[in-house]
Every structure is written in C-alpha cells, then in structure tokens.
C-alpha cells in the first residue's frame, strides 16, 4: 500500500537526517563512540534479521562469521593488503564458509539448526583461540591498520562515523531490495510454512542457503569494519555473547522489519549505558527482558508501532466509511511484488 511505501521512504529520510546531524549534536566522545559501535552492530543485526527474522532459521553462529570477517580483514590488512580489497574478500570468505556450513545444517529444521550453528560458533572461537601462529591466540591481533583513501586515514571519530554509516546504508539497500521482492517472499514462505513452500515448488533448501550466505556476508563485513576501526581483535570478538546481544537488539527492535534491528542496536546499548550503576545486575535485566519480550511482545518495538498505526488507520477509515480495499495494479506493490 502507498502508506507503507511512504513510511519506508520516511524511515530512510529520518535516518539520513539523523545521520547527518548526529555528529553536530553529540559532543561527548564516549557517546559518539557508542554511536559508531551501534552502527556496526546495526549491520550485524540487520544480517541476523535476514536469516532469523525473515527466513526463520535461528543462526547462532553469527558472531562466528563476524569473527571470520574481523580476522580476515585484520590478517589481510596487516599483510599489506588494502582495506578496500580485504573487506569484500573477507566478507566473501565468510559467506563461503556459511555455504559450507549451511550444506549439512540447513537440511535440518527448527532447533537442530540453532544447535548446529551454535556448535559451529564454538568451534570458531576454539580455533581462533588455539591457532596461535595465525591468529595470535588469546592475545589476539593488535595494530590493525585503519582504512585509508589515498593519504586520508579514517582516524577521526567523525570520518569513522560516516564510513560506517555508508556501509550501513549499503546493507539497508540490499536488505530492502531483497525483502521487498519475490525473493523476499520465498524467504518468508520458508519461515512461515516450509512444507507448503516446498509443495508449491520453492526449493526451500536453496532459499535457506541464499539467505544464510547473504546474512553471513554482511556479518563478515561488519566484523571487518570493526577490526579495522578498533584496531585490535581477540577471540572474544567471535564469542557468542555477541550473538546474544544482537538477538536482543533484533527482538527488542522488531524482527522481520528493517527499522527494528537499527532501533534495537541504538536503543539497547544506550539503555545499558544509563543502567551502568547496576553493574553485573544489568545482565540479569537483559535476560529478564529477553524472556518478557519473546513471551509478550514477540514482534518487538516496531511490531508495537505497526499495530498502533494499524489501529489508528482503521479508526480513521471507519470514520470516512471507506473500509474496502480496491485492487489496482499499482497498489499491489505494498508487500513485496
């Protein structure tokens, strides 16, 4: 529907506006650094959203793929390769590993896939921690060079901020195109009813593989950017605590929406920041929140906003006495086609 289309446009506009003005508004270097991290984690959460939110497959190896991207970029740029070459390469490797892991695990359904990917995530952490010659073991990789264009180095916070923002917009663009298309409908058909999707001719296995590869490509990309901007990485970069964090961002913000993951990735760390005084207890709140959200608000913040909007709209419509839908070819672009 036109309304939804407009809302998507609005969403981009607001995001861009916020993006441009944020460096002017935020003067605190610490908060600004948080914003940069939120941008990076937005990319990671958006990619988790593709495989979990839209395709319905709980991949818990997401931090592992983030780690592959991070170590890929770290190792390649330290060896002298340009960031601009290392990043796509590392992302591609991440997607390729995703393909290899997807082959055995995506044939399974439901919990099996979650458990298998979790296992794979653990394997990655163990390998990173123990393969000292390559990864530096538990001390990690230090002194990873920052991205450069010519002689310009992305060392100031503002330049880093805009760099990550550009990558986030790229991610958002790809996700938007994928989700609002027949391909996106294929993803959702697998999530919603896999046996029926298969019965109407959708190769569900191939669909899941595509979703998993794209998700892991962007997870790897987020990791690569992280490594290059932070400058040092360690096995904890790939630890599943990261996956859990993104899961919370995703569910809190709203799974299977494009705005939700970004909303979650900004709102939640900020919330945690304000709860700093609670120290370790913060994590307990984190856990309680996760349970409450999944039980009572499974569609997250964006889901809440959507149903509110829907309620207002129907009321408005009823008042105007035009409750009937009219099919027009142009109006059909509402959901996907």
């Amino acid at each position: 529907m036109a309304v939804k289309f407009l809302r998507e446009k609005w969403f981009y506009l607001v995001l861009l506006l916020a993006a441009v003005t944020l460096p002017l508004v935020v003067t605190d270097r610490y908060i600004f650094q948080l914003a940069i991290m939120s941008l990076i984690f937005s990319i990671a959460t958006l990619s988790l959203n593709l495989i979990l939110g839209y395709t319905g497959q709980a991949s818990l190896a997401h931090a592992g793929f983030f780690g592959i991207g991070a170590y890929g970029v770290g190792l390649m740029t330290k060896a002298g390769l340009s960031f601009w070459l290392a990043l796509p390469l590392a992302s591609f490797i991440s997607a390729l590993v995703g393909f290899l892991i997807g082959l055995p695990t995506l044939r399974t359904r439901g919990s099996y896939f979650a458990i298998a990917t979790l296992c794979f995530g653990v394997i990655i952490s163990i390998v990173i921690g123990n393969w000292v010659e390559l990864t530096g073991g538990h001390t990690g990789l230090l002194g990873i060079p920052r991205p450069k264009i010519g002689s310009f180095e992305f060392s100031s916070q503002i330049s880093q901020y805009y760099l990550v923002l550009a990558f986030l917009l790229l991610t958002l663009f790809v996700m938007h195109r994928l989700v609002h298309s027949l391909q996106g409908l294929s993803f959702m058909s697998v999530r919603n009813n896999e046996p029926l999707a298969e019965a109407v001719g959708i190769n569900t296995f191939a669909t899941k593989i595509i979703s998993f590869m794209v998700a892991n490509f962007f997870a790897g990309m987020a990791g690569g950017i992280y490594a290059s901007l932070i400058g040092s990485i360690s096995p904890s970069t790939a630890s599943f605590n990261h996956t859990f964090n993104w899961l919370v961002y995703l569910l809190l913000g709203g799974a299977a929406t494009l705005a939700g993951p970004i909303l979650g990735a900004f709102a939640f760390p900020l919330l945690m920041e304000y709860l700093q005084f609670l120290e370790d207890y913060r994590l307990i709140i984190f856990g309680v929140l996760l349970i409450i959200v999944i039980i009572y608000f499974p569609r997250g913040l964006m889901g809440g906003i959507e149903s509110l909007q829907h309620r207002i709209k129907t009321r408005y419509r009823l008042r105007k006495g035009d409750g009937k839908n009219v099919v027009t070819a142009s109006g059909k672009s509402h959901q996907a086609v």
Binding site: L182, S186, M188, S189, N192, H334, Q335
Partner: peptide
C-alpha cells in the same frame, strides 16, 4: 502462509 496477505500467498504459489 498465515503470516502473509492473500496476494502474497498466491505470488508464492507462482514463484
């Protein structure tokens, strides 16, 4: 596909 709209269901059928 009970999370989706009628038209989407049919589009998936034609996919």
């Amino acid at each position: 596909f009970n999370q989706l709209r009628v038209a989407d269901n049919l589009a998936i059928g034609y996919r």
